[in-house]
């Protein structure tokens, strides 16, 4: 009896869970479905918009949008900025993560340094945005990829520090000690022992940092003009004739697809990463 009741309950819970999952997935689905319709049908299709059943899908919007250089420039700029910022954040942040895991600092103590790194993700960027605008103009790096990379690197660095710090803490220190007994320097022990053993965490941190740099709009809208990235490119889908749903859908998808794939790849580390190392997950 118990077993039957159990499987019935499991079925009921599964149905509820499936329903909620569908609701949460729907907006992404709708956008994807929209991108496959001919313009007229973006306003007329009813139901949940399943290709071949509710409408005849076409790749026309995609080929049309991707044939314009704007799409390529935006994709190139966004990827370039995100990749270089992530790489820089790792080069600068990884040793700091290691230092916070392995060395003892007295003043200020380690945990305060860690919290200080984290605090940047908590503070509202609006407070820093006017100074950046003025300073970047003075330094002549306004509206350049270089200027954008500097800003993004600053604000994504906490992720690598807190995520990889935890991994370094979990590594047995004996491995590094053994390497140093064999004649490795401190830096050698870090580069040849600690870093290779933490590659999964570093990769996950990179995916999260890449996504945050890729997704940013606030700093982009202040510090970039002609050198546009994806968000600005999406906004271009709205013109004087009103919002063109079919183009918006394609452009939204172009922006969102990569983060979604990265999200699935970094799944195991999202909890630790987005709670800034506080919950191990």
């Amino acid at each position: 009896m118990n077993k039957n009741q159990g499987s019935l309950l499991t079925s009921i819970y599964t149905i509820i869970a499936l329903g909620i999952t569908m609701i949460f997935f729907f907006p992404l689905w709708w956008s994807f479905s929209n991108s496959l319709r001919i313009p007229k049908e973006t306003f007329t299709v009813t139901g949940v918009g399943i290709p071949f059943i509710n409408f005849t899908p076409t790749l026309g919007n995609w080929t049309h949008q991707l044939s314009f250089p704007e799409a390529h420039i935006a994709l190139y700029n966004s990827s370039f900025i995100a990749v270089i910022s992530t790489a820089l954040a790792i080069v600068v942040g990884l040793p700091a993560a290691y230092a916070l895991a392995r060395f003892r600092f007295r003043f200020p103590p380690n945990k305060d340094i860690t919290i200080w790194f984290i605090s940047q993700r908590v503070l509202p960027p609006a407070a820093a945005v006017v100074p950046f605008f003025v300073l970047w103009n003075m330094l002549g790096i306004y509206d350049t990829k270089f200027g954008m990379i500097i800003v993004q690197t600053t604000f994504i660095m906490p992720f690598v520090v807190v995520i990889v710090r935890q991994t370094f803490l979990d590594l047995p220190i004996e491995l590094e000690e053994a390497a140093m007994v064999d004649g490795a320097t401190h830096i050698g022990a870090f580069l040849k022992v600690a870093v290779p053993l933490s590659v999964p965490a570093i990769a996950a941190a990179s995916l999260i940092m890449f996504t945050f740099a890729w997704n940013d709009y606030f700093f982009v809208s202040v510090l970039m003009m002609k050198n546009f990235t994806l968000p600005i490119y999406i906004a271009g889908g709205v013109d004087s004739r009103g919002v063109q749903f079919w183009f918006i859908a394609v452009r939204t998808m172009i922006a969102v697809i990569l983060p979604l794939i990265l999200c699935l790849l970094a799944q195991r580390y999202i909890v630790r990463g987005l709670t800034l190392g506080a919950v191990k997950g």
Partner: peptide, 14 residues
């Protein structure tokens, strides 16, 4: 968990 990483600005348009 897909929504977590989606570009917020794009989500607005979506």
């Amino acid at each position: 968990i897909l929504p977590i990483f989606a570009t917020p600005f794009a989500i607005g348009f979506m």
